[in-house]
Amino acid sequence: MVSITKFLSKRWLIGLALGQFVSLLITSTGFASSELSRKGINAPTSQSFFNYVLLAVAYGGWMIYRKRPLQMKWYFYLLLGFVDVEANYLVVKAYQYTSLTSVMLLDCCTIPSVIFLTWIFLKTKYRPKKFVGVAICIAGLALVVFSDVHASDRAGKLGGHKVKS
């Protein structure tokens, strides 16, 4: 039997808070991209700049503080960084041309892809709990898509007003 204190540990709560913060950043990027696109502004790389600066300061500072050496040669990190910048560019562009649900589907595909690529290139070992977490995220996304598909059924009853449904 699993106790509730295991779920309410400090480490678990910090992980939950950081996950929610990342989710907030992704949602903010989507909202900002949509709004900028409506105003005719096209700057997907500039939109991601703050995220990369924040990542460099936080993770770089943590690596310096822990005095940990790099796990691989520097040029592998450079290659992965280049691929990440290009992928993020495409995701931000996708926010400008499609609905939020479609972009969530794109983001959902990145979770298994990142796990697979880090397993192949970085030799990361994952525990079954990580795969269960990914499965829960994908199941949640499936529910969002299912809800979005059936929103049109409810829209007829409410006069087609999306805010009310």
Score class of each variant (00 low, 15 high):
residue 96 Q to C: 09
residue 143 L to R: 02
residue 118 T to N: 12
residue 98 T to N: 09
residue 19 G to W: 06
residue 13 L to W: 04
residue 153 D to Y: 08
residue 101 T to E: 06
residue 107 D to H: 09
residue 114 V to T: 08
residue 156 G to V: 14
residue 68 R to C: 06
residue 16 L to S: 10
residue 131 F to Q: 01
residue 3 S to I: 07
residue 131 F to A: 02
residue 145 V to L: 03
residue 123 K to G: 00
residue 76 F to K: 13
residue 2 V to W: 11
residue 38 R to G: 10
residue 163 V to P: 02
residue 31 F to M: 12
residue 84 D to S: 13
residue 96 Q to A: 15
residue 163 V to T: 13
residue 83 V to R: 02
residue 83 V to S: 01
residue 28 S to L: 13
residue 46 S to W: 14
residue 7 F to G: 15
residue 60 G to Q: 00
residue 30 G to W: 01
residue 71 Q to Y: 09
residue 101 T to Q: 05
residue 149 V to R: 07
residue 97 Y to T: 12
residue 112 P to S: 03
residue 87 A to G: 04
residue 119 W to Q: 06
residue 155 A to D: 05
residue 10 K to Y: 11
residue 22 V to R: 04
residue 18 L to E: 04
residue 60 G to R: 04
residue 86 E to S: 07
residue 103 V to W: 04
residue 81 G to S: 09
residue 124 T to E: 11
residue 130 K to V: 14
residue 114 V to N: 02
residue 151 A to R: 14
residue 103 V to Y: 02
residue 23 S to A: 15
residue 78 L to E: 04
residue 60 G to F: 03
residue 124 T to H: 08
residue 9 S to K: 00
residue 63 M to A: 09
residue 155 A to S: 14
residue 15 G to Y: 04
residue 161 H to A: 12
residue 77 Y to F: 15
residue 108 C to A: 15
residue 50 F to P: 08
residue 82 F to S: 09
residue 127 R to L: 09
residue 49 F to I: 12
residue 125 K to R: 12
residue 81 G to D: 00
residue 18 L to Q: 02
residue 100 L to K: 03
residue 18 L to V: 13
residue 153 D to N: 09
residue 116 F to Q: 04
residue 138 I to W: 10
residue 145 V to H: 02
residue 85 V to A: 10
residue 16 L to C: 13
residue 103 V to E: 04
residue 150 H to E: 03
residue 98 T to H: 08
residue 90 L to H: 05
residue 158 L to C: 12
residue 68 R to L: 11
residue 59 Y to M: 12
residue 44 P to F: 01
residue 97 Y to M: 08
residue 112 P to N: 01
residue 150 H to C: 01
residue 37 S to E: 10
residue 26 I to N: 00
residue 25 L to V: 14
residue 118 T to M: 09
residue 25 L to M: 11
residue 161 H to Q: 14
residue 161 H to M: 14
residue 106 L to H: 00
residue 157 K to T: 12
residue 83 V to Q: 05
residue 80 L to H: 05
residue 37 S to G: 12
residue 40 G to Y: 11
residue 96 Q to S: 14
residue 69 P to G: 14
residue 114 V to Y: 05
residue 15 G to M: 06
residue 103 V to N: 01
residue 133 G to T: 06
residue 83 V to I: 15
residue 5 T to Y: 10
